[in-house]
Write a protein that binds this DNA or RNA. Structure first.
Lengths: 221, 221
DNA sequence: ATAAATTTTTAGACTAGCCTAAAAAATATA
DNA sequence: TATATTTTTTAGGCTAGTCTAAAAATTTAT
């Protein structure tokens, strides 16, 4: 009942793809996600099906069994806990941690994962704003809100824009506002709802309500 | 110029064995260390020789090339840094960390190793008292001393006994003094050189000079 | 509804790392 | 020094995971 790193990576990919699909996940989409060939996927899916980690009907798609899903969620839990560790404890920039976490996520000790979780103070979200599954595989899904709806002193991460005009995107770039940027609301002016925000713990800027209404934010809960 | 985990483990084993051998390391001893068969070792040694990580003369032994040695030392560095992390930050007992570090040592990011080293405060020794190679692969070898020679307020780890009589060993067992136990010298009485020590951060005990003269200690430097 | 295009699977082959059994070399013993 | 023992290597084969090329099934388009 132990799985190779490759098997774990397949399960993780199938899990992620199944979030965007109502039906089973296609062989081709897995191949794309794993950067491999469809024939290799067929082979591996056969193996995972034999281990009862996925269900597979030929030429239809693949779905995770409850066991397969719980393994996938455990890998994701570890991945996100390590990302949090790398950013919060080792001061890595948030956009450099994914590759490293891809390796750390396969370290198998349950005790390690749980002690790490405790050491980090049971974080709810990783540095990209993605929720960290708990030890039972439960994931809290939190909807994005507009930056304009974020309260004073709260923090969050930019996850999208509602206005995709060239002008707006240029404004964002000029002010170092990127997908993934961390936003802390320092103050809100009553008279026009403009916000004083701290971007990525560095630059303090004032954003008009016109701007804050058009930014999607993933809060840290 | 990237190596598999298996290759890394062979290099590590060859390095450790070469410390106890003046000549080249024998195929059989590697097989024993790696828990595999001699024929498998021959295969792998051939591969490592081709990669110029070891020198090999048929039927004579194996030695690491400078490149091979520096890779081995880097793995050992990572192993010991992670062990230190697990014990000091995650509160693992010192005798439970080896297996976990065996996995963590293969995570390949140089940035990770160096940031971890910094986060831990550049420790000189791991929880077992083994020296941690620096980023250039330099290892500080420190000779053991007698517990009786340890100064007040210093700490160290029990690495051996000079008196192996049944009576002495029983005394040690009764007082929770084991190989690897962490000893902190709380006080030394002038009149008989007896020591007040804290064992494994738990029990405070008085040890006579007769006892402390017969315990080898690896200091934290 | 039939042909064309796409997706998926099968067939056969490759590498890494391991194995057993047998051959070759080195070492120990008589 | 010749023989016996031990060590090491070779030969050939196995599994996991990958690949290419071709066949089979499905979907799309005419």
């Amino acid at each position: 009942m132990t799985n190779t790193q490759t098997e774990e990576n397949y399960l993780k990919a199938i899990y992620s793809l199944s979030l965007e699909e109502t039906k089973g996940v296609s062989t081709n989409s897995i191949a794309k996600a794993m950067d491999t060939k469809a024939s290799s996927v067929t082979d591996m899916v056969k193996k995972l099906a034999q281990k009862k980690l996925v269900d597979h009907i030929k030429y239809q798609g693949v779905t995770l069994t409850p066991t397969g899903q719980s393994i996938a969620l455990n890998i994701i839990r570890k991945h996100r806990l390590w990302e949090y560790f790398l950013v919060e404890k080792l001061d890595f920039p948030w956009d450099e941690v994914h590759e490293i976490a891809e390796q750390l996520e396969h370290v198998s000790s349950k005790a390690l994962t749980n002690r790490l979780d405790q050491f980090l103070g049971h974080p709810k979200k990783d540095p990209h704003g993605d929720p960290i599954p708990d030890v039972h595989g439960n994931v809290v899904i939190s909807k994005d809100i507009r930056l304009s709806d974020l309260a004073k002193a709260s923090t969050g991460i930019i996850t999208g824009v509602l206005d995709s005009s060239k002008a707006f995107l240029n404004f964002l770039a000029d002010n170092n506002l990127k997908l993934g940027s961390k936003i802390a609301v320092a103050d809100i002016y009553d008279f026009d709802q403009s916000m004083v925000v701290l971007i990525d713990e560095k630059e303090k800027t004032i954003l008009s309500n016109q701007v804050t209404k058009n930014l999607n934010i993933n809060t840290n809960d």
